[in-house]
Design a protein around this nucleic acid. Structure first.
Lengths: 219, 219
DNA sequence: ATTAATTTTTAAGCTTACTTAAATTTTTTA
DNA sequence: TAAAAAATTTAAGTAAGCTTAAAAATTAAT
């Protein structure tokens, strides 16, 4: 399917949260940076393709087929983000920009390869869920910040909640990457510091860092 | 620039080898699977953009600007091939198919990240040269087949010249991957076998394999 | 409950990247 | 070298994905 169509169903899916009116043509148009007229036009076309239900002046509603398409694109976007982040040490800002294009030119075959390579993660580096091949989503993110972890337990890094270049470089240099495994060796609760072991290195992190590094239980 | 334009200049560049007539609109049209009329049309448009020189009934000639664009796309194509091949153990056939799409949606920034990650290789897994960022090409491939290597020397794997699934799986399992380093420990010239060391494993390969595994000197 | 403001739709038009059909030019061949 | 074949160009037309402008409907405000 074309890039325009994929972006359209994706925008509807993403706007479908709070207010019903958020999926009206005008709001989708605003999100995509196109005119209202273009959005109405596209809505009619997609209704003919059975991707959404269109009724004059009403909010747009994705059909099952439309939602599947949206989830498929979102899956590819988030897999690329996770992959670029981990493989090339790119910041959260950079990976989003690239994934926005790559998502449309990725076969299901390649998406599965990326997913397997990453260990089929359920969440991307932003903490957003990655739909599986069938379009199923795990909604509850069990990630916790490093400051809330327990001594002696092993975790997998799930998020580095920052776009600060220095923080990011520090993480990359020390193997603190999305998907990598760490061991919490000591919690200095009084000083709000956490000691971890990664790749046989011991690192002591202060509050500034332990609050923005998120991890998942290893089981 | 659009996908159609990128593919057009790429097709001209790739056809510009033997016969001058190979870059006439009809031959480009055939290569791209479009009508001759469409090719003529596009040629005129690209001439207006100073990407090629167009004269009625004559072969199409890329300008410097057009050639740079072609080389940039080819660079991205081959970097993706090399990367997918090494990272996901995909066959030469599979990587080509994916790269054909990804090449158009890859920023120069990401292309450089991929190149750095691979160690800025000069040739892709098919043995085709990878232009550098400036569009410069190393034309002479110094690869030799494993059967022609010298005992005691270290090499970098540059090509696995086959699309046979079994051969490919064998290579992947044993770390015989594009870009990986190996040590030739013994040449059994009489039996036409080669013993190599890779990742602290010793593998004995017969003629069938040593003839289709290509390597480069490590210097 | 009107009026005003906003949103949605319709209508007409544009660009890109194609198509087919016919006209023109070039190339081949006898 | 003239006729036949092939390639190229021109012309007209199409679909996708937009635009702006005006009409119609909905929503908000007084």
């Amino acid at each position: 399917m074309s890039v325009a169509i994929e972006n359209f169903v994706k925008a509807i899916y993403k706007n479908n949260n709070n207010d019903v009116n958020d999926t009206k043509p005008g709001n989708i148009a605003k999100k995509l940076g196109i005119s209202n007229a273009a959005a109405t036009d596209m809505a009619k076309k997609l209704a003919a393709k059975n991707l959404l239900n269109y009724e004059k002046y009403q909010a747009l509603q994705l059909t099952n087929k439309g939602e599947k398409m949206a989830l498929n694109v979102i899956r590819k976007h988030r897999l690329w983000e996770a992959f670029l982040h981990k493989t090339f040490d790119m910041t959260l800002h950079e990976i989003h920009r690239e994934a926005e294009f790559l998502e449309h030119e990725t076969s299901d075959f390649l998406a599965n390869k990326i997913s397997d390579y990453l260990g089929n993660p359920k969440f991307d580096p932003h903490g957003d869920p990655i739909p599986n091949e069938k379009g199923e989503i795990t909604t509850i993110d069990t990630s916790i910040s490093l400051s809330n972890t327990q001594e002696g337990k092993q975790y997998i890094i799930s998020r580095l909640m920052s776009d600060d270049k220095e923080f990011f470089d520090f993480c990359a240099q020390n193997g603190l990457k999305y998907g990598n495994s760490i061991l919490v060796t000591k919690q200095f609760s009084k000083n709000k510091m956490t000691q971890i072991s990664i790749n046989n290195n011991t690192i002591l992190l202060n509050e500034d860092f332990t609050n923005i590094i998120y991890v998942n239980d290893l089981n």
